[in-house]
């Protein structure tokens, strides 16, 4: 394989249970075939990619270029999504490039204890994402012009009080919804809400969270999310959108995914 070593690099998607119990997707990043390498009781799902386009140098060059990165990230996700719909998966983050199978195995071996711990946490569980959006704006300023500066200030003050009260009510409702779902989950993560420019919506995201849910509890979790959604719509002018099951990306921390990923997911920023 020494020839191949010079022209290809190994891209790791994630780890699955050993024994080839479920089917791999046919194609991965850059249309490459997908194969596995044994790693103790697990298997690493990988593709051989042209070194020319995917070496560490290429990542350094393009790693922050969305046009280059997006199809790579999408293909990486598609492989993992295929796998999570068929069984347990420990997803690895990008970039996950190694010069050879041996180098990849060495890297995994060096963090084996952490990987085992992560595997124990993730086995039998999937990630559900939850986002909360408002369905109505906060109270808007009243129209008629104030008759005096004093009246203007008083009115402004009462409007601000009303806004603060409403804001407080929403804050409480969002927090309570999150806490109720977190109680049903093995773990949870709250991320910074995504910007409107990214979501392409007029309304801002109020909560962007993820939950690690037992596969057997999925229906129960979703039923609760739907109940909370109906409650929020009726009483607080907000709605819930859930996405899943995701590969449990948000719950593979530094320990799970190798030395590169120092930050444990958590409250950001």
């Amino acid at each position: 394989m020494s020839d191949a070593d010079q022209t290809t690099v190994v891209h790791a998607y994630g780890l699955v249970p050993g024994g080839g119990r479920f089917s791999l997707p046919e194609r991965g990043i850059a249309d490459a075939t997908v194969r596995t390498i044994a790693f103790h009781h697990l298997e690493v799902v990988v593709s051989d990619l042209p070194a020319e386009s995917f070496s560490e140098a290429a990542w350094a060059e393009h790693g922050e270029d969305t046009q280059w990165l997006t199809p790579v990230a999408a293909a990486h996700h598609d492989v993992l999504q295929h796998l999570v719909e068929r069984g347990d998966i420990l997803p690895l983050q990008l970039p996950g490039i190694y010069p050879s199978d041996e180098a990849l195995i060495d890297a995994l071996e060096s963090s084996r204890a952490d990987l085992e711990r992560a595997w124990q946490t993730l086995a039998g569980r999937v990630e559900w994402s939850l986002q909360i959006f408002p369905t109505a704006e906060l109270p808007a300023p009243e129209k008629p012009a104030p008759r005096s500066g004093r009246e203007y200030l008083e009115r402004r003050r009462s409007q601000q009080d009303a806004r603060e009260t409403e804001r407080g009510r929403r804050e409480t409702a969002v927090t309570e919804a999150h806490e109720a779902l977190a109680r049903e989950a093995a773990a949870d993560v709250v991320r910074a809400p995504l910007d409107k420019a990214v979501t392409g919506r007029e309304e801002p995201m109020l909560l962007n969270s993820a939950y690690l849910v037992e596969r057997e509890q999925e229906q129960r979790f979703l039923a609760l999310a739907e109940r909370l959604h109906n409650q929020l719509v009726a009483t607080s002018g907000m709605r819930i959108e859930a996405t899943g099951p995701w590969p449990p990306y948000s719950f593979v921390g530094a320990e799970g995914a190798g030395e590169r990923h120092e930050d444990e997911p958590g409250m950001v920023p």
Partner: peptide, 14 residues
């Protein structure tokens, strides 16, 4: 955006 946020070891910004 949700995919990128999860798959990359960095945040995303606009």
């Amino acid at each position: 955006a949700d995919v990128l946020e999860r798959v990359l070891d960095k945040g995303i910004v606009i």
